[in-house]
């Protein structure tokens, strides 16, 4: 663990760049794919990569949500949706030029917006000067919760977290719906042959 912080930053940036490149490749794959099962699987992969990028950028809670929602529950939901509709994408009726134009303009504006942001992990940035020091110094004794992240999430941003909890709860229900099996003791019509898959 005795590594210089400089090399750590380089390693993190390098990893983020590689992962973002892979995400780009996955996104192109999603766009080119006509088979919707393939699309679902590729977007699951995309979410996993995205969540890893989030961790590399130190946004651990966002990574958690992205992994739970993107890779976990939306795979299940999309598979359910495919079951109701159909397995292959139909030919688009529009020409792609107008959407392409809109997306390009939006993307360009977003990139332009990032130019006004402070540098990544700049200690002088407003976000580190405004409320963050107060959370760090006063939070634990004011709320009595030892973990600072929990202080912010569960106390200062309680309602926000309540919404997130619903998302995670939904994910949990999805898991139960998925892994549940009929109890052999309760099925009378079948003589106790359990599910072996």
């Amino acid at each position: 663990m005795a590594t210089g912080s400089r090399s750590v930053i380089i390693l993190e940036e390098l990893t983020a760049v590689v992962l973002l490149t892979l995400m780009g490749a996955a996104a192109i794959g999603v766009a080119r794919q006509r088979n919707l099962f393939g699309v679902v699987l590729l977007s699951g992969i995309y979410s996993f990569l995205m969540a890893t990028v989030m961790v590399v950028l130190d946004a651990v809670d966002v990574a958690m949500t992205e992994a739970a929602v993107g890779a976990g529950i939306s795979t299940v939901l999309l598979l359910g949706a495919i079951h109701l509709t159909g397995g292959t994408e139909s030919k688009p009726i529009h020409r792609p030029w107008l959407p392409l134009f809109v997306v390009t303009v939006t993307g360009a504006m977003l990139v332009y917006g990032t130019l006004g942001l402070p540098a990544f992990s700049d200690p002088q940035a407003p976000i580190h000067q405004h409320v963050a020091p107060r959370y760090l110094t006063e939070g634990p004794e004011k709320t009595g919760v030892p973990n600072v992240v929990t202080v912010v999430l569960a106390s200062y941003r309680g309602f926000d977290t309540l919404g997130e909890t619903f998302v995670v709860f939904t994910a949990g229900i999805g898991v139960i719906a998925l892994l549940r099996r009929r109890n052999p003791r309760r099925t009378q019509d079948r003589d106790g042959e359990g599910d072996r898959s």
Binding site: F48, A71, G72, V76, L79, V175, L178, S197
Partner: peptide, 11 residues
């Protein structure tokens, strides 16, 4: 989550 996704696909 990884195993949840895989089992969903399998099911």
């Amino acid at each position: 989550l990884n195993i949840v996704g895989t089992i969903a696909v399998q099911k």
